[in-house]
Nucleic acid binder design. Structure first.
Lengths: 240, 240
DNA sequence: CAATACCGACTTGTATACAAGCCGATATAT
DNA sequence: ATATATCGGCTTGTATACAAGTCGGTATTG
């Protein structure tokens, strides 16, 4: 078996291992809701779809498991972990803690890194130059990740990146409303300004509010989605 | 092959998977300096020593890799990652950030969890009741972990636990001097007292100093160890 | 008819076989 | 003598074979 598949074609690009490609593909499927929260599936199915054997599939799955995306039931298959909003809210709070710490460090620097100027070039622009693409969620994530990375503590940055990635699946929902895109531009610009002026307390205050706002918006949207989903199906499915 | 081994004997205790047991064993070997920082080894060697096949060994190794303990060189074997003091100091700083956040939450609670009273029963005791066992490092770790867990954010607690575990290998060195054990008792008691009185700023101050002290002590001790190791061997080994 | 025992398909966990790349020793050529 | 090419053993990456447990449907028994 293991006939040709999109994964095995490009033997020229021999940088990533097969296990890593399967990992990326699976995470993408989860993010694209091709695999829904609560869905059950088996290693064999994944191997079939990706064209790889079970070995790299298992490696990818166990990595996703440790990162909190899926869970395994002993000899009874895998499951995409159902949404747990309490977990997401806790992760939002972790973001607040880490990013405020980063702001503290940045404000204490006599000379701030060049990254901050690059961020200002993106976010502190006149309204007509603002991009309101579908990639807004990625840009927002990049902003916050860059902030922590610029603070100089790479271990903290790594942890923050993992947390951000984990939240990403629902954070995207925040940018479906145009008003939220505007608000994000305004708030990012204000944070950068306070940062440049070394107003630590003010910057932290702005950033905490900014993240908390996003968290609340997402909570509202997700509850709405849940309500709709429950209306469509006769009796409410338990999964997500 | 795969003759009897300590790992396969107890088929009654069928709770942990073989891969997990190998993971624990490998981490223990690293912590016990049976595998030294910088050491190279192969999957086959580990399989031989543990009596498992390469499959669970690989699963354990890749988990340790993601956690930062080992690294793999493509088709050239595995290596225990050499000590990088910058990384350790960054992880100490992450601890400060997370634990101060936990203190903030605990001080804001109208009714603090019962865990705190349990901690006081351990740490706020007269001098003659203090235990100065070799397990001091574990007790210290448990204190800080309990603090974050009690704050209520389980995701933050999970992250903090991983960071603590990663540092543990050098944190133990801090308790080789009796004076440091005394200081730890005093400082933990002071932190718990400030916490009970809801003196957030004071508690954070005490805790930051406490962790920073520990960090500096460990830095000194490790540099001393390095110096000694370099003296023993003719030319200084690069590894650790 | 209801309850239970059993069987078989399907699952993950583990062991092994095979593929492909790295690295140093050795031989060869200049 | 030195530089270079080649080859063989050892390494991880991947595929497959086997072991052992889960679960639901079905037959059997009261």
């Amino acid at each position: 078996m293991n006939r040709a598949s999109p994964f095995r074609e490009r033997d020229s690009t021999r940088k990533q291992s097969l296990a890593e490609r399967v990992y990326e593909a699976l995470k993408q499927m989860i993010f694209d809701f091709e695999l829904l929260p609560g869905d059950y599936f088996s290693e064999a199915e994944v191997a079939e779809r990706t064209g790889a054997s079970r070995t790299p599939v298992r490696e990818a799955l166990h990595r996703l498991r440790r990162e909190g995306y899926v869970e395994v039931h002993f000899r009874s298959g895998w499951q995409v972990v159902p949404f747990d909003f309490e977990v997401f809210e806790q992760l939002y709070d972790v973001r607040i803690v880490l990013e405020c710490a980063a702001i503290g460090r940045l404000c204490a620097m006599s000379e701030q890194p060049a990254t901050l100027q690059a961020l200002r070039d993106i976010w502190c622009v006149p309204i007509e130059e603002r991009s309101f693409a579908t990639a807004m969620a990625e840009q927002d994530k990049a902003f916050h990740t860059a902030l922590v990375t610029a603070s100089g503590n790479q271990e903290m940055a790594r942890i923050h990146r993992d947390v951000s990635e984990r939240i990403h699946i629902i954070r995207r929902l925040d940018f479906t409303q145009p008003s939220r895109i505007e608000a994000t531009y305004d708030e990012h610009a204000a944070i950068l300004e306070a940062l440049a002026r070394r107003r630590e307390a003010h910057a932290c205050q702005l950033l905490s509010t900014h993240i908390a706002l996003s968290r609340n918006e997402v909570r509202k949207i997700t509850l709405h989605m849940l309500h709709e989903a429950r209306s469509r199906h006769a009796q409410g499915p338990v999964g997500m």
